[in-house]
């Protein structure tokens, strides 16, 4: 009897259990990657703003619109008035621009879908990174080629730390780059 029970366990129960555990873990892990760090998230925006056109073809500098990135913690999505700087005249009959003008004239809130979001307990500071010479593309991917912006990097703590620790390799274009801080209070106040 005993031999048969042990046999049953080893040949039947154990592999099945291991298989179930492994399979569910692996599938969940990969299937949920998108939720866990959001890589690849490329939502539709209320206005089809194309970075490829503005930042890529027309070569408008990132900081023309994202004004606060050099001064403060936030990069700041530009005010609608910044768009209207050009678009009161430029292509003002295009349907997207008409939508945009409506937002501006009626004071309607323009709710962009947020793509890059770090949890509330992490206080990320853009200006420190920008002032050290890090380019926008290092973290945000090739924005200048994106029709629709998507999240290209995972912004988990692991990925932030990996760049902080290997800054020499990850940021070769900065001379004399130092390792980024690794202590808790850097981000988690």
């Amino acid at each position: 009897m005993k031999a048969s029970l042990l046999d049953y366990i080893l040949r039947n129960r154990l592999p099945v259990t291991i298989f179930v555990a492994a399979a569910s873990f692996i599938i969940t892990f990969f299937a949920s990657r998108a939720e866990r760090d959001g890589v690849g998230y490329t939502p539709d925006q209320p206005i089809n703003y194309s970075h490829r056109l503005h930042a890529g073809e027309m070569q408008i500098d990132c900081q023309y619109c994202h004004v606060a990135v050099e001064k403060s913690r936030y990069a700041m999505v530009p005010a609608v008035a910044t768009c209207m700087n050009c678009h009161t005249i430029a292509k003002k009959d295009s349907p997207e621009i008409i939508k945009l003008t409506e937002y501006y004239n009626n004071g309607k809130t323009l709710k962009w879908k947020r793509i890059h979001k770090v949890p509330d307990y992490a206080y990320f500071n853009h200006s420190v990174h920008v002032n050290k010479g890090i380019e926008c593309e290092s973290c945000h991917g090739e924005i200048k080629q994106m029709e629709k912006v998507g999240q290209m990097n995972s912004f988990t703590m692991r990925s932030c730390l990996s760049c902080h620790r290997n800054s020499h390799e990850r940021l070769p274009y900065i001379d004399d780059v130092q390792r980024g801080p690794e202590y808790c209070y850097t981000c988690h106040r």
Binding site: V20, S24, I27, T28, A31, S32, E35
Partner: peptide
């Protein structure tokens, strides 16, 4: 039985993960 249990378990996990 095996697959129904497995399937329901997966459903549960996916539900809590993706919500």
């Amino acid at each position: 039985k095996f697959f129904s249990v497995f399937g329901l378990g997966m459903m549960g996990i996916l539900f809590t993960r993706f919500s």
